[in-house]
Design a protein around this nucleic acid. Structure first.
Length: 398
DNA sequence: TCTGGGGTCCTAGGACCC
DNA sequence: TCTGGGGTCCTAGGACCC
């Protein structure tokens, strides 16, 4: 989906069309940010001048989506709001409304599966679709079906998407970015050298900033550079699995099926504080946040019908380093109090003598609530977690 | 006043078991 | 002075993705 969050917002606020708009930032609702309007002003009649602007922003948020006009200024997703404000202070700013995006996400996915039932979820705004067995799915290399899906989504929601059709998921994902927004690209296997090899390695789904930097150090910049490398040479430098995978990817090979079902592995809640907190000085505030995170994750588990037996905490220090601690139970749970108590034990094992910026709680090793596994106690033969170290800083805190 | 939140998967070492 | 081999589980960190 093209600029998904922002596009959904523009459906509500069409008066913002064509303007630089960013979605992201704070916890506050838009109504709190817009002042001085009659209470029942229709959303599409709120004057543009009433919307908050990036220039007014103070906080630690990041951009989740920017409209194409905002991108002209160099703003992109994951960029800090304060940095974006310097690039385009006049950009209008809307808080993230996940519930609304989820509604549209469900709507567009329903349209897709009504047309092509083999669909894999790739998050709120992206899917893989298997055209193979869909009647007409091969016409014009898939372009006809892609057009039907694109038009059906637009007619029902007013949202645009970009579609890549290719022999496998790896290539389809890359092809989908060739023509944005609202484009369709059909990519054939024989076009690999011509259309894929010139691309930078970072365009491959699975090559991130670290791998890209390492490759740059080896003089590898494009996917074609990668394709020229001997598999053994790649394995030597990038490890057995990753090196072999890099070679496959560079040659456009990918045999992963479109997976229509998947079970969650973990559920978590985390929050970045408005200011850094200290475990001693801000103990009460931290404790309240900690308990709240445990309650939220327990709610999530219960609502979705899962129980888990590995409880984890995550800290981000002011210097952005991350520490995690896990603590496994001998039975499954979705109980807030038990999660809180167990997470508290995990928290005692992590250094708390430095300012904190984020706290998170995770429950992993999930199974369906009420399933056979969920009932039986788990026999553990692995290592026991180490006892909490006694110390003046850590021992007295939670 | 740089840098969110929710995920998955991989690696590597140590504990533990047979 | 010398101490296996194979397998699983657990934990911590990190890369990557949407």
């Amino acid at each position: 989906m093209d600029a998904f969050f922002a596009s959904v917002e523009l459906l509500r606020y069409p008066q913002l069309k064509g303007l630089p708009v960013v979605v992201g930032g704070g916890r506050r609702r838009l109504e709190e940010l817009i002042g001085g309007l009659p209470p029942d002003t229709p959303l599409d009649r709120i004057p543009v001048s009433a919307f908050p602007r990036l220039a007014d922003y103070t906080g630690r948020g990041v951009i989740t989506t920017a409209t194409y006009p905002a991108r002209q200024f160099g703003i992109g997703s994951a960029m800090g709001m304060m940095k974006a404000a310097k690039l385009c202070p006049q950009a209008l700013m809307l808080p993230t409304d996940f519930d609304e995006y989820r509604r549209y996400s469900r709507a567009f996915k329903k349209i897709v599966t009504d047309i092509a039932p083999l669909m894999q979820d790739r998050g709120v705004d992206e899917v893989y679709i298997d055209f193979t067995e869909v009647p007409g799915g091969q016409r014009e290399g898939g372009r006809v079906l892609a057009r039907l899906i694109q038009k059906s989504i637009f007619d029902a929601t007013g949202l645009t998407c970009s579609i890549g059709v290719a022999p496998n998921k790896l290539l389809a994902k890359m092809a989908s970015e060739f023509d944005k927004p609202n484009g369709i690209t059909v990519l054939y296997a024989h076009e690999l050298a011509e259309r894929i090899w010139p691309l930078p390695v970072s365009k491959v789904n699975g090559i991130g900033p670290k791998a890209e930097a390492k490759m740059a150090g080896l003089g590898l910049h494009t996917i074609g550079d990668l394709a020229k490398c001997e598999p053994a040479w790649l394995v030597q430098r990038f490890g057995k699995a990753y090196g072999a995978w890099l070679h496959e990817v560079a040659w456009g090979r990918d045999d992963r099926p479109v997976e229509t079902e998947s079970e969650p592995v973990s559920m978590s809640r985390e929050t970045t504080f408005e200011r850094d907190l200290h475990a001693v000085r801000d103990k009460a505030e931290l404790g309240a946040i900690f308990t709240h995170l445990c309650e939220k994750v327990a709610e999530d588990l219960q609502r979705k019908g899962y129980v888990g037996r590995t409880i984890g905490v995550k800290l981000r220090y002011a210097d952005f380093r991350i520490a995690t601690r896990d603590q496994s139970l001998e039975f499954y749970t979705a109980d807030a109090k038990l999660i809180r108590r167990t997470a508290g034990l995990a928290l005692k094992r992590v250094p708390l003598d430095r300012p904190l910026r984020l706290l998170g709680v995770r429950v992993g090793a999930l199974v369906k609530a009420g399933s056979a596994e969920a009932q039986a106690p788990v026999r553990r033969s692995g290592s026991r977690p180490p006892a909490a170290p006694a110390g003046p800083v850590t021992a007295s805190l939670f």
